[in-house]
Amino acid sequence: MVMVALPFVPLLLWAFSDRWFFPALAPQSWGLRAWIYLFRTAPDQILVVTLQSLWVAAATACIAVAVGLPAGRALGIYVFKGKDLLSIVLMLPVVVPSLCVAMGLHLWFIRLGLAESFLGVVLIHLTFCVPYSVFVMWGVFSNYNVEFEDQARSLGATGVQTVVRVMIPMTLPGIVVAGLFSFLLSWTQYLTTLIIGGGKIITLPILLFALMASGDRPVAAAVSLLFVLPAFFTLFFSARYLGRKGLVGVW
């Protein structure tokens, strides 16, 4: 925990400082100026941007899981032709930098009217979140015994009941991992959001860069802290909930 917290020390120092000039090791004067700015001077902007980021990441995570679950199930359980090819295709977005994908798709998105739109940003995030989610769920379903579903059917569960009451609970740790990590991938995107969002869709990382460029370090540090909150939450959650259950084949 100490190891994880270490990089955040300077961030905390910055966020609670009023003045801190080179070459001092600690701020010359402490204060809440950054936080007052955040919550008093510009709360609307911060709130709007945070919500925007949340919506983008949440929508991306939900769609990534919704696609990853059936696709991972098919890949993990059934044998079919072209499975190897499919796995290479899925690898592509992981190998090819997302910047290139975004640049490549930008023109198409403009033609389709997706550029500078919420949907466009979500779609570009999905290009790498979906493969990630599919890979996670593929691993989960490789160690999954379909006979549980047969047993459920025989005991009187309908097809829908079997999915909701058996398949999802059985694969829940994997679903949570796929969802949380897709959320984080989307939450931390800068370049792809910037290219497709074109400055219309402003998320936290974009705001953060703007603040850094403006040179107001304490405010940028405060926003950064807000920004790493979900990551901390995810880390904490995976350690507490998933770590114990031993997620074989997911990591």
């Binding site: 015994n145 006979e147 549980f148 047969d150 047993q151 459920a152 059917r153 025989s154 005991l155 009187g156 569960a157 309908t158 009941q161 009451r165 058996v166 609970p169 059985m170 829940l172």
Partner: peptide
């Protein structure tokens, strides 16, 4: 299968790990 009055017990117990004993028995 869920409409058939025939229930199968598999070779492996296949108990749902996310349910306790009572909840497993109550499943059907």
């Amino acid at each position: 299968p869920e409409k058939r009055p025939a229930v199968m017990v598999f070779q492996k117990p296949l108990l749902f790990p996310f349910l306790n004993v009572e909840q497993n028995i109550a499943f059907g």
